[in-house]
């Protein structure tokens, strides 16, 4: 691993997130962390933003990245960095919900306006965004993690649920999204 990273560095070949993180764990080099942030920050923030309010999403995102710094020695080089990052963020978010005694599953699903940043041009995209936000929390979470490239097994590990539950949530989420998009745009 180390030698391949060294060779890639010498040849200026782009390193994967896992290789960047492995190097960062060893060196603590700020530039490596910056690259990791540039690669994953948008995905994470978008995930958190869809599951919470903008202020809370920004706060949790920041805490997650700080935790990456603090807990970097706990990162396993054979694991997927993004899965580790999302697990940290998801745990922080759920801790926050528990602390404030807000249980997302019981919340009424309502369409929220994300402000000017999330204004969409196309009707379909707008409908999708609204449909996504009206999904129950755990279905929304499973769907988003799936769209981020995680498999059912990864999602089960990130959320601490069994795979059958994840499959079920994904199925319902897709079904509802299709239905809402169909109603909107057919």
């Amino acid at each position: 691993m180390t030698l391949s990273i060294a060779i890639k560095s010498l040849l200026h070949i782009e390193l994967s997130n896992e290789e960047l993180m492995s190097r960062y764990v060893l060196s603590g080099d700020a530039s490596l962390l910056a690259k990791l942030y540039d690669n994953c920050a948008r995905d994470l923030y978008h995930f958190l933003l869809t599951l919470s309010e903008p202020e809370l999403a920004a706060d949790i995102a920041q805490k997650s990245w700080l935790r990456v710094m603090e807990k970097r020695h706990m990162y396993h080089s054979n694991g997927q960095f993004k899965a580790w990052l999302f697990t940290l963020a998801r745990n922080l978010l759920m801790d926050e919900y528990r602390r404030t005694k807000r249980y997302p599953l019981l919340e009424a699903c309502e369409v929220r306006d994300q402000g000017s940043q999330n204004k969409v041009d196309g009707t379909l995209l707008k409908a999708f965004s609204q449909a996504l936000e009206t999904l129950p929390f755990y279905q929304r979470e499973a769907f988003m993690l799936y769209q981020e490239g995680f498999g059912v097994q990864d999602i089960a590990l990130i959320t601490g649920e069994n795979q059958e539950t994840i499959k079920s949530r994904l199925r319902y989420a897709k079904q509802q999204l299709r239905q809402q998009l169909g109603e909107c745009c057919e």
Partner: peptide, 18 residues
């Protein structure tokens, strides 16, 4: 989903702080 994500930008302040 990808189009929706592209509308979002990660907070710059977090990057600076980090």
């Amino acid at each position: 989903y990808q189009q929706r994500k592209e509308q979002v930008k990660a907070p710059h302040s977090t990057r600076q702080l980090l």
